[in-house]
Design a protein around this nucleic acid. Structure first.
Lengths: 161, 161
DNA sequence: TTGCTAAATAGTAATCAATCCTAACAAGGA
DNA sequence: TCCTTGTTAGGATTGATTACTATTTAGCAA
């Protein structure tokens, strides 16, 4: 989406964020692509305007924008590979708090594969439905989060188990 | 699922794999849990039977089992965080070859949120549908893969872009 | 316009999941 | 039993991300 500097400034202000050239450039770059870039992609992109910008700034900025809900992490459970010996197609229920993953087996969901809204030039080999939320154990007010995706801080804490 | 040594031996043989105690233990541990463990989780688990087993062996074994289709990686695009400034709920079309991600906006898919098959003790806050396959550019016979998820080798090659 | 202050930036170092490399080892067939 | 080839384990390496920290700057108030 095309955004003017003023649009961006307004959005940042509305969230109580300082408006810095770097921050604007990062958000602008992300808002103007549909390619779901990585932090590195964005850093490379923004380098063309701010040659001295640090990757660190990109990571920090993204975490801030994520916190206020201006940005989302598309693959929010990207931290580590997780495996399953059940190779039949099935779907998942993911707890945003404790990261537990439950399986769902259901014909209704499987049938989505024949859904007609898929662009005809895309060859589909499979699909997966994820429901996000809170498992029975994690449904207490103080620990609950309100928005997707989970902040990247959780990533850091993962080793506390 | 409960599996005897013989069951596992048969499955390995059927895929032309050597049957080693470590390999059996790893697969057995994965098959007997529904918790979608990480490689580290599995290593810890198997350590109780094979105290000297190397994490390396777990990684290698998982990649082999994945290749022959006995195991799948649940979050197969876990390698790096990817971001989106479009924070409205939407869904994705993911190319297994080039990892491109296209957005899908559709009311039909959004309506799944009210799907009745979700366990009542799970509090759902959102959901996401992913379709996997091959984008127009990647639909050539020599580069196409046949199964999900993509082998971990792709992970290594990602920097060639 | 000028300071003040808290937050942002950038550089360096650290962390850690995952992979690479390689020598020793062992499964399975001859 | 022997041989071959795939497997294992250990050490080193890579690379995304985070931690730490000194410097800079945005935003506010005088």
């Amino acid at each position: 989406m095309k955004l003017s500097q003023e649009d961006i400034r307004r959005r940042f202000k509305a969230q109580g964020l300082k408006v810095t050239p770097q921050r604007v450039a990062i958000y602008k770059a992300l808002a103007e692509t549909t390619e779901h870039p990585t932090a590195e992609d964005l850093h490379l992109q923004v380098t063309q305007i701010h040659p001295m910008i640090s990757p660190n700034t990109v990571y920090y900025t993204l975490s801030v924008l994520k916190e206020v809900g201006l940005v989302q992490e598309v693959n929010y459970w990207h931290d580590r590979a997780r495996f399953d010996a059940n190779v039949t197609p099935h779907h998942h229920l993911i707890c945003l708090q404790c990261r537990a993953i439950q399986d769902i087996h259901d014909k209704t969901l499987d049938r989505l594969l024949r859904w007609s809204g898929i662009p005809s030039n895309f060859q589909v080999t499979g699909h997966r439905v994820e429901f996000h939320g809170y498992c029975a154990q994690c449904q207490t007010a103080d620990t609950r989060r309100t928005s997707l995706p989970i902040p990247s801080k959780a990533h850091t804490k993962r080793r506390n188990s």
